[in-house]
Structure formats: C-alpha cells, structure tokens
Design a protein around this nucleic acid. Structure first.
Lengths: 216, 216
DNA sequence: TTGTAAATAAGGCATTTGCCCTATATAAAT
DNA sequence: ATTTATATAGGGCAAATGCCTTATTTACAA
C-alpha cells in the first residue's frame, strides 16, 4: 500500500528534514510540499488525492490552524497531523478544535513519525505523551477552555507543581509532606513561593488559578 | 532507577500476564498485586511508596474508576494507568475524570507497556492511538462532557448555596459575613452544615464537590 | 397544633494556615 | 567566579479554620 503525504512548513530546511525521516519507509510517498497554507490549498484543488498532511502551525499567509480548518471542511477524509516545535496549550486546543487528527513535536524520530502516520490513517490519533497529558487536563477542566484570556507567564518549578497537585485535593500541609517525603516546613515554604508566583493568598485561589492556567 | 509498580485486576491470570510482560525490564519492580480496589487501598495505607498503578476497570467490591478517585485524592503523586479490555467511551471519560494518567488496552505488548510507564512517570500520558482519538472527539464536543450522571441527590438551601459561592472565590469567613450581612458565626454555621451535606472537611473539597455537582 | 427545617448567633478549642524570619546545599546561568 | 533559582528545613505568631456545644426566631408541613 502507498501512503500519499503532503508537507507544509515555511521552513524549507525542516521540510527536508521530515522528508529525510520518511525516506526510510518505502510505502510513504511525499506527493508535494508547500511553504504556507495558501500554497497547499492551491495544490489540493488541483489534486486532492492525499492521505495525510504533516502541517506546521506557525506560517505566514495562512497558518496551520486556519489551513486545517479549511482543508477539513473541504476534504474531511484527509488526515492532518500538526507538526510543531512547541507544545503550547493554546495551539493544541485550537488545532484539535480545527479538526487535527494528531499532534507531534518536530523532534519526533523517524519510526515514531511513521507509526503516528500509520495509526492516524487507520483511524487513531498520533499524539506525543506530553501533549496527550495536556488534552487530558483540558478534558478535566472544561472551564478553562473558555477562560484562556490572561496569558501572563507563570513558571512554577517541578516541585512546586507537585505540591500544587497535592494541594488541589484538599490535603493538609502535613499530609502533603508525608506523601512527598518532605518536612511540613518545606511544604509550607513551597506553598509560600507558589502563592507569590501566582499572586494569591489561599489554597482555593491557588488551585483555581492553576487550573485556569492548565498547570494542574 | 527503580520503578515501583502495583497491579490491580480481578483476574489473577491477567495479573500474571502483565507481570510477565514487565519481567523483561530490570528497572521495573512489581511491589504488590490486588484483586480489587479495596485490597489495593489497604496495601497503600500500609506502604504508599509506589510510583505507578496498573489498574483494571471492571472489578468487584470497588471498581477501577472509584479506586482511581480515592487513590488520587489521597496520594496524588501516584500515577495510574487504566489497563482494560475495551475502549468504551463512557469508561474512558470517567477514568480521565477520576484522574487517570493513561489508558492502555490489555493487548498492549511489553515494550509499549514499558514505554507507557516511563512516559507517564515523567509527566506525560500513556495512551493508545484509538483512545487518543476518542479523547480528541470528547474535546471537540464539550456537550457530552457535562451530561453525566448526577450521582446522589444533594440539596443545599438557597442560603447555603450563596455561602458556597462566596467560599469558592477564596474569601474568609469574616469577609463572606460582610458580603452577605451576616455574623461570622452564622457563616461558620452554614459552612459546617454544608460540609455535613457534602460530606467533606475543607473549603477546597467543598468547592470541588459542588462544582462536580453543578451546584456552583 | 406541633414538630421539623432553616436561618440566625455565639462560645470554646485544637489544628491549620498564611506570612514573616533565617539558613544550608546544589545546580544552572552569567 | 559569582549571582540566581531551586530545594531543603526550621522558628514564631496572628489569624483562620474545622468541629463541638447551645439557643432563638421564623416558616412550612404533618
């Protein structure tokens, strides 16, 4: 069987890198490549016999999200995997909403990319584990689907996120300390720092804000 | 590094099969196995030094969804991968809601299972492509998200709901009293009654439960 | 009419929380 | 090499919380 692939990326060097990865697999054929969404749409209007598109998100003229929307509207049978450098929450959600069938990072290796393509064509979704986790969080907190307004950068350390996760279930400092093998003093300190970073003054506010920012 | 795993499945034959798959990997250690949720919970209360639980869904006494909820509430740091025979929509959604970090089918091979465990422990989500696709569909149609069972009937008085609404924003008793023109004692009393009705013991738990029941 | 539920208010008390302070060790960045 | 961020741990203290008790008033149902 032959898999007809199209690649869209404004960076021609990266297009080449993807082609290189796919060159290991005989059944994959890159039918055409485009530097932006408009170019892809023209090519699809000429010939839409394409099984799957590997699509970048950041592109001039017509970006990956917009392009995905148009392609899916016109050719719903064509599968689309977003292939991007960053696993930004906003992008992931919008790409899924636009109808993307998968979301992989550009650093994905040849075999993983190939497997993702096969799985997507047979009806599954190709997804990087870290992105899968983000979709789970979005599913758990349907509220923040809408409330993704204030985009101030919040950077909590790994440990702080762990503590916040424990906080969110209503555990006390001492129980959190027990679970994480820390002294209650340390937990208390982490929580102080979390409050400063999130600019809040209570457990509830912290948990609320963290959820709205998809931290937990 | 050593990965401490627990397995829960009412079919002892399948427990053995999973152990067999994991036996290929030196860094994986199955610390204990249980035939149902209650058994697991007892073992965790004795020793909660477990990194990840492989959990069946259909089990007697306490099923996988319920057990996941309890474990995640008490030990949020323990990762849980649901390991089940069927990729039923309702199950997937409920497992995610309960806090599962991954969802794999029982037919998953040794390497895939091992990779899933590693990825989950490092913060990602282990997910079968067909299940990933189902989560994407759930995200696209938020309609199905809310229309779940309402569980037990919870009847709060109008006043109690008002207080709960104030609670949910992180206000203190005295500030709530101020807002509602009540004495702090009264607010405190209302909150006591709310806790009894919701069967919780802290602000966070109350707000969480109220949100899950669409009270606020 | 008599109870029951709800709303109001208050006292007491052990525990928890939020917010100051200091301090050491390590890893990363400049 | 030195600053910066992170993780760890602790002391102190006022305020808040969670949980117990009692008590009055109102309103609605049995």
């Amino acid at each position: 069987m032959s898999l007809k692939i199209a690649i869209v990326d404004d960076n021609s060097f990266l297009i080449h890198a993807v082609k290189e990865k796919l060159s290991f697999f005989d059944d994959v054929h890159v039918k055409h490549t485009s530097l932006n969404g408009s170019e892809l749409l023209s090519k699809l209007d000429e010939n839409h016999v394409i099984d799957l598109i590997l699509m970048d998100i950041e592109m001039p003229v017509l970006n990956g999200i917009e392009t995905t929307e148009v392609v899916k509207k016109k050719f719903p049978q064509i599968k689309i995997i977003m292939l991007t450098a960053f696993d930004n929450d906003e992008h992931i959600f919008n790409a899924i909403k636009a109808g993307a069938d998968g979301y992989l990072l550009k650093e994905t290796g040849p075999q993983e990319l190939y497997d993702g393509i096969l799985e997507t064509i047979s009806g599954g979704a190709a997804m990087n584990p870290s992105i899968a986790m983000k979709t789970l969080k979005l599913l758990r907190n349907p509220l923040n689907i809408d409330n993704r307004k204030d985009k101030e950068e919040i950077s909590l350390s790994k440990r702080e996120v762990e503590v916040l996760e424990q906080l969110s279930t209503g555990l006390s400092y001492s129980l959190i300390a027990n679970n994480l093998f820390l002294s209650p003093s340390t937990v208390r300190k982490h929580i102080e720092n979390i409050y400063k970073k999130l600019q809040v003054h209570s457990k509830i506010e912290a948990v609320q804000k963290a959820k709205n920012h998809n931290i937990i």
